[in-house]
Write a protein that binds this DNA or RNA. Sequence first.
DNA 1: AATGATAATGAAAATCATTCTCAATTAGGA
DNA 2: TCCTAATTGAGAATGATTTTCATTATCATT
Lengths: 149, 149
Amino acid sequence: MRYAKPWWYKRMIEEGIKFTLQRKLILDVLNRTKKHLSAEEIYFIVRKFYPNIGFATVYRTLDLLTKIGIVIKLNFGDGRMRYELAEKENASHIHLICKNCGKVFEDGGDENEKIKEIEKNISSRYNFKVENLKIFFMGKCENCQKGGD
Amino acid sequence: MRYAKPWWYKRMIEEGIKFTLQRKLILDVLNRTKKHLSAEEIYFIVRKFYPNIGFATVYRTLDLLTKIGIVIKLNFGDGRMRYELAEKENASHIHLICKNCGKVFEDGGDENEKIKEIEKNISSRYNFKVENLKIFFMGKCENCQKGGD
DNA sequence: AATGATAATGAAAATCATTCTCAATTAGGA
DNA sequence: TCCTAATTGAGAATGATTTTCATTATCATT
Ligand SMILES: [Mn+2]
Ligand SMILES: [Mn+2]
Ligand SMILES: [Zn+2]
Ligand SMILES: [Zn+2]
């Protein structure tokens, strides 16, 4: 085999769920994109490679993968959920969401240390086992501060 | 007048929107509860005091108040949006969400300083004007770690 | 290869939170 | 009081997501 199996393959096997073609294709799409795709967008991309895939399968797969932590399900407030591949450890980046134009920006992880610290405090303070975190900064992007009202 | 107008009253006036009875009642509900209510829950509570209020008015009001920062709109993943009164300055607390039982816990603000610092860094790094932030820690609550799988 | 048990899938219908439409009402300034 | 724009309530419409159910794929055993 030319390529090593990706980390999510191992995770799926150890969870006892099957690595079907449909699931593989959905994960490939998420792996290749930099964007935050919606279920529908993923559906249409996968369809190019596998025209028979059903809408429900996409939703089911995304839910399943979210449940086991391979995928992160995000709500940026545009009326549909969006999905991204989880990062290998439970590190996760901050999302900046412009309330004006809707654009989403990602922080490059420069705050990771501070976040880890907060996570540790919270974990021990509440006896809460943190599996992943979602940090959204809502506000106005550079562009919208100048131009729009 | 016995009581001073609440801070959101002033905000609404300065935004040039009317402080109607319906809006007042919705804000009163949000102000009195500790929970994170959905639009429907708010609707049924307001109805006790004002049986004629319409569902659409509740949604419209919550949207409006969210837009001007008086209300925060949250998605905990249970299929409906939930609302809480914003805090007076743009301070906001961390939400811990149990993926197992769905319960939501709130941090008492002990991480505020660290969060402020992150906020400041992000603001200047990306020239992003932060208006409010949503921090969700997804995981398993104390109870669910013991009992259920 | 055939079998059977179980998991996964696709198509379509159903659900249901949220938004839209529009006629009626209200609020506040001239 | 009159005028105008904002607000509201009822109900219909929307549309993302879920459910249903018959069919198909998977895989361990004969
Ligand atoms: Mn992201
Ligand atoms: Mn809260
Ligand atoms: Zn913007
Ligand atoms: Zn729990």
